[in-house]
């Protein structure tokens, strides 16, 4: 069932990108099955890591709003640093303990959105935390990562009232 839906979706994507040109199927006949194969393989892996998280469609507009706002803020912040004479960089690694998000799709999304926050890039996932690289550490940076975690949790309908596992954020090497 999943492979049937993804075949339909990916073939639809192909025709949208190729503007319905049938001659493009000469290339598509190879790449559409290839991408179906990859998506089925990856979803098998994601299914094993799933832990009851389901996407809440009603929360998508709020997430998109947050995403756009952070994109603008992050882009502006980095651009200003790149143009300024004194770039004010104090790059450091920070261990951010994960409080609510399980492994799988929610975690992948969280890692990608963290990279869009002003001044932080998700580096590597550890069992209970993520290593984040920041351009300059402030209290605000950590609060923003937490806000990001809350938004992603909300998007997947996760319980955020659970006690925090560990609220200490410490510097890495």
């Amino acid at each position: 069932m999943f492979s049937f839906i993804s075949t339909l979706l990916l073939a639809g994507f192909w025709f949208l990108l190729a503007e319905g040109d049938l001659a493009s199927l000469l290339v598509g006949i190879v790449f559409i099955p290839l991408s179906v194969f990859v998506s089925v393989k990856l979803s098998e892996k994601a299914n094993t890591a799933r832990s009851g998280a389901r996407l809440q469609f009603i929360k998508i507009p709020k997430f998109v709003g947050f995403f756009l706002y952070q994109s603008i803020k992050g882009g502006k912040d980095t651009a200003l640093r790149a143009f300024s004479l004194n770039m004010q960089l104090q790059p450091e690694f920070v261990h951010y303990p994960i409080k609510h998000i399980p492994a799988g799709l929610p975690m992948n999304l969280f890692m990608n959105v963290v990279s869009l926050l002003p001044g932080s890039v998700g580096v590597i996932r550890e069992p209970n935390s993520v290593l984040v690289h920041v351009l300059a550490v402030t209290d605000q940076t950590l609060n923003e990562i937490y806000a990001c975690e809350l938004i992603v949790s909300e998007l997947f309908g996760l319980d955020v009232s659970a006690p925090k596992r560990n609220s200490i954020t410490k510097k890495a090497t």
């Binding site: 994109s71 882009g75 651009a79 790149a82």
Partner: peptide, 21 residues
């Protein structure tokens, strides 16, 4: 930013954020 920032991680900041915007 890619040219001016000091290391790989800082350069990634410049590339992901500014280019996305």
């Amino acid at each position: 930013g890619l040219l001016r920032f000091p290391d790989v991680f800082c350069r990634l900041h410049a590339l992901t954020k500014s280019d996305n915007l």
